[in-house]
Simulated assay, not measured.
Amino acid sequence: MQQHALVSRIGRVGVWHGGLGGVPADEAREAAAEIEQLGYGALWFGEGPGSEAVSQAALLLSATERITVATGIANIWVRDASAASAAARNLAAAHDGRFLLGLGASHAPLVDLRGHTYAKPLAAVRAYLDAMDAAPYAGPAPDSASARVLAALGPKMLELAAARAAGAHSYFVPTQHTARAREILGAGPLLAPEQAVLLETDPEKARSLARAHHTRFYLELPNYTGNLRRFGFGDEDFANGGSDRLVDAIVAWGDVDAIRRRVQEHHDAGADHVALQPLAADRGLGLEQLRELAPALGLG
């Protein structure tokens, strides 16, 4: 399979981490530096209520030297397109092209919390990209063109990601989605799914932790349940934090080899890069899991 040029920068495996915005800055810096030292190629993070993507990216970039820092995703309702375009270029210029702008329409409940109006996400993202491309920019140009990817689940958004961005970043998806996304994107564009992971071999404990710290929240968001219906999941799978079948499809749990196999399944299905999200029972940063996984994934 032809790989996107970005793969040489971000590698085959990265980290998706939602917790770095909720800890003191010094702790976030130390974690980012360790993730880089472990050999992960990119550090992704989200933008939810109470967080801001550009300042968080600047903090993580300043704490690292080689790793790509990527928004997964920056919410288009939070800042206008001109600001997003300038921010991406400024950060790329200041940090040797190590910033990757992931953009998306987020979810109606999360957008409503910020006081914005969520409507027609495909049209909104397309208009936002138009405005970005037309925005003036007076700052220093990065040595290489700043890249962007789109959060994409459905066919139309995936098509837009192929046409107007470097590719797609998917979240809360089974490996079947990765295969379908590759079919829609074609051979060239980047495909970088997130994969939640949990080093826990007891099935009951693993699924309980996965529900408590991951699936229960996301199954309240219609964009995700709507996407999962495309792959044979239904209302009975969405109840009570997710059926065993759904939890097992979304969260890779077990020993190191089980996690490695799931990552390989994504790669075999067409992913260029897989971003691991460590789930921690104590709501910590899960760095111990990333330390244990890195050698098995050929990192370091």
Rank of each mutant, 00 (worst) to 15 (best):
V251Y: 07
Y218C: 08
H213M: 08
D235K: 14
A42F: 06
G11K: 13
T68F: 04
R207V: 13
P174R: 07
H273T: 15
L122P: 06
R245K: 14
D268N: 15
G19L: 13
T175E: 03
R126H: 14
A86G: 06
T178V: 03
L190N: 08
E265W: 06
G11M: 13
H116V: 07
P189D: 11
E34F: 01
G139M: 09
V247G: 02
N75P: 00
A135W: 04
A42D: 05
S51I: 12
L38E: 09
S51F: 02
G270E: 05
R216H: 02
G254F: 08
A92D: 15
F233V: 13
P109N: 14
A108W: 05
R261I: 12
F238A: 13
A93M: 11
E159L: 02
G41I: 07
R148Y: 01
T68D: 07
S144E: 08
H116P: 10
E220P: 02
R98H: 10
V78E: 03
P203M: 14
F231T: 09
A33N: 02
D133T: 10
A119F: 05
R12P: 12
G41M: 05
G232V: 15
L158G: 00
G254T: 14
A119N: 14
R229L: 02
P193V: 01
E236P: 00
A42G: 04
S62H: 13
P295Y: 15
P295Q: 15
D96L: 00
P278W: 04
H169V: 04
F45C: 04
A135T: 00
L110F: 02
A141H: 06
L290S: 15
L191R: 05
V15W: 06
V263P: 09
L276A: 14
A108Q: 14
L293N: 12
F217P: 08
E194R: 11
P193M: 00
T117L: 09
A252K: 13
A93H: 10
A57Y: 04
V23I: 06
Q176L: 01
R216D: 03
L209K: 05
L6D: 11
S243T: 04
G41T: 07
L219A: 03
E200V: 11
S85W: 01
